[in-house]
Structure formats: C-alpha cells, structure tokens
C-alpha cells in the first residue's frame, strides 16, 4: 500500500533566453521530464551537480516558478499555478528552506516577526497566540525564547538555519523542500541541523524533498534517492539500491569522485604513493 503525498509526472521546465536583434531566442531545457512519488513521512533526496536542474525542480515544487508542462499533485490535489492564483491551502502545503542562511532571513526583521509572518498572512490567529506559537517553535528548533526579539545578524549560520526551518514549519506544511540546507554550514553544525531535521520529521510526520550535492549527507538522511544529470533523472530508487548498485554511468562517476575519509582508503592511497 503506498501513501504518496507528492506525485510528480513528466515535469518539464524550459527557459527561453531572449534573442538579440540578430540572434534567435534560445531554449534551455532545465528539467526534461521528471516523474517521481514521495511517500508520507519519508525523505526523497535529489542529488546532482550544479546546473543539473535540481534547484529548478525545487522552485516548481514550491510554486515559485510554473512548470512548462507536466503535473504536480500534493496529497491528491493538483497544483497548477498557471491556472490561477495560489490559494492559501496550496501555499500552506509546501514550504522551502534555502541553502544560504545569510540570505534567506530579512536583515531588518526580528526573529519573532519572521516566524509570525506566515501565521499573520494565512491565518486569523490573534497576536498573543501567534507570539506563543512562535516562542514554542523557537524552543522546538533548539533556540531560546529570548531570541524572539533579536535580529538575524546576531546569530550564527547554524542558528539562522534553525530559524529558517522554524519559519518553514510554522504553517505545518505537508511537504518541506530543503534546498541544500546544510551545504553552507560547518561540519559540526551540519550534524546538528541534520539531527534537528530528523527529530522534526518524527514529530510532525513531515515529508522531505532534500536537495543536495553531498552524497554522504544523502546517504545518511534519504529513504529514496534520485540522481539528476542535465535535467534528467538518470537514477531513481531506494537509498540502498542506488548506493549499493548504481546503474547509470554518471552515478558511478559521482560515487567514485566523492572523497573517502576512511582509514582503508587512506592506507591504499599512501601505499600507492610510496610505490610510485
């Protein structure tokens, strides 16, 4: 029995670069027909290198950009922002966490206001209750109530990313798109954020689409893995299937290129070096 919360079928996105006076317009196929399902409460990791279309995919899932063709269905409801305005229900269903915690928080907005904004705009929660919810959420993501009145520049990168995650789940979304949420963070902070994401997933039964270029992170967090290469999904399967038995050449190259930090590999390298 499958309980797919997100169904994506043959999703395409083209970018047309405007031609000059003498050059014809060019079409760039950023995403070339991608299909996948994500089950409720699970994590799909989308892996690929820069320019493979994974961020374009994230923008389409979060209704920032409209797809050129194909369909997205969230919890049985089709999402089509071409057809009209994004409704509140649609917006509440999906939220996103960006890669760069330094750019994703408004520098002139206090943390409390950051967290309350989604409630203010989408619900009719009274101010006092909004405040309590925001405080509770701060604690949930490992911050303190006194952080409520501070500005983003008073926080470290990891703390800002916690705030960004808190903002994203204020509306209790069904689906959370994480666009490289830990790649701008230090290793030790990365571990904390990954743990936080795992905790939140358990608590709220969240579904993640986790976009990353880092295979070791993906291996740690994903249930399903999709590898993208030049706009196409070249590999799609469960984590173990993809990591243990990659089919596509690109996936194999990717695995081979990932640096290995285990003792056996170091020994092998040093042996090869002294032999040479």
């Amino acid at each position: 029995m499958s309980d797919a919360i997100l169904k994506v079928r043959d999703l395409k996105r083209d970018y047309v670069t405007k031609g000059g006076m003498f050059t014809p317009p060019r079409v760039l196929h950023a995403v070339k027909g991608v299909s996948f399902d994500v089950e409720r409460g699970s994590t799909l990791a989308v892996v690929g290198e820069s320019g493979c279309g994974k961020s374009t995919l994230a923008r389409m899932l979060t209704m920032i950009d409209a797809p050129t063709s194909g369909s997205i269905e969230i919890d049985g409801a089709p999402i089509d922002i071409n057809a009209g305005k994004v409704t509140r229900e649609m917006r509440q269903a999906v939220q996103i966490v960006f890669q760069n915690p330094y750019g994703s928080l408004n520098p002139r907005q206090k943390i409390g206001a950051v967290l309350e904004e989604p409630l203010l705009l989408n619900t009719s929660t009274p101010a006092a209750e909004r405040r309590d919810l925001a405080m509770a959420m701060l604690e949930k993501v490992g911050l303190k109530p006194e952080h409520y009145g501070r500005y983003p520049h008073m926080f470290s990168g990891g703390q800002r990313q916690r705030v960004a995650i808190a903002r994203a789940i204020m509306l209790k979304p069904k689906l959370l798109v994480l666009d490289e949420p830990v790649s701008a963070l230090d290793l030790s902070v990365q571990a904390q954020i990954l743990n936080l994401l795992a905790d939140l997933q358990d608590e709220f039964n969240l579904t993640y689409v986790f976009i990353s270029h880092d295979l070791s992170v993906v291996r740690y967090i994903a249930d399903q893995v999709m590898v993208m290469y030049f706009g196409e999904a070249v590999e799609y399967g469960t984590r173990d299937a993809v990591f243990d038995n990659p089919q596509h050449d690109y996936t194999k190259t990717l695995f081979a290129a990932t640096p290995r930090a285990d003792v056996a590999s170091i020994k092998a390298r040093l042996a090869a070096k002294s032999a040479a």
Binding site: L187, S188, V189, A191, Q192, N195, Y220, R260, A261
Partner: peptide, 21 residues
Amino acid sequence: LLSALPENATGDRLPTVSDYT
C-alpha cells in the same frame, strides 16, 4: 569532528561537536 561525518554515522543520530561548539 570525525564522528560528525555523516558517512561515519552508526546510529540514527549524528554525534555533534556540542562539547566544544
């Protein structure tokens, strides 16, 4: 630092560098 590497993760949770950071 080494145990915070995701590839070295053994259990469900990653150990963090909390003592220090």
